[in-house]
Amino acid sequence: MVTTDEKGPLTAKKKSVIIRSCDGDEFLVSESAAVLSTSLKKILEEKEDRLIHLSDIDNKTLAMVIAYLSTHADDGLSDDLKRSFDQEFVSGKEFDVLKYLVLATDTLQVTCLCYTVAKKMADIMKNKLVEWVRREFDIQNDYTPEAEAEIRRLDAWAWDDRQLEDD
């Protein structure tokens, strides 16, 4: 991602913005980091105000997103280091934490992080049974037993359909 202020005057790089979470905590962020989020970039382009209030992101989640943005805005870090930071960033995080993180990155339009988090969430679900997914993620099974059996049955019968068509 390209930061817009690279070509601007040197002072532009030093600019910073204050981002406030829904619980009222404030974070001082360099503008070059903030603009890595497409939504924040748009807000900054539209208004002079250096204070952005995010009413739907809590401080814990926002702190994580800002740590990510700051790392990626750091020109002193190599791409390899940034990549390993991304891996570290999601590893070991609970599904519950990732849930809020994926929502926040989607709202803020931090595409790369949203992708990494979504992938991590899928990795947790990988190779798990249907019942495990429902239980762990608190999902109501809204299939009737008949409907669920029907989906499973259709698979088993796929091959036989062909033979019927043959006749």
């Binding site: 829904c22 619980d23 599904f95 929502l103 608190d138 999902i139």
Partner: peptide, 16 residues
């Protein structure tokens, strides 16, 4: 100021 953060009870409350 009110916190509008949604309480995400399950993964299912995420947008489609």
């Amino acid at each position: 100021m009110t916190c509008k953060r949604k309480r995400l009870k399950s993964i299912d409350s995420l947008p489609d």
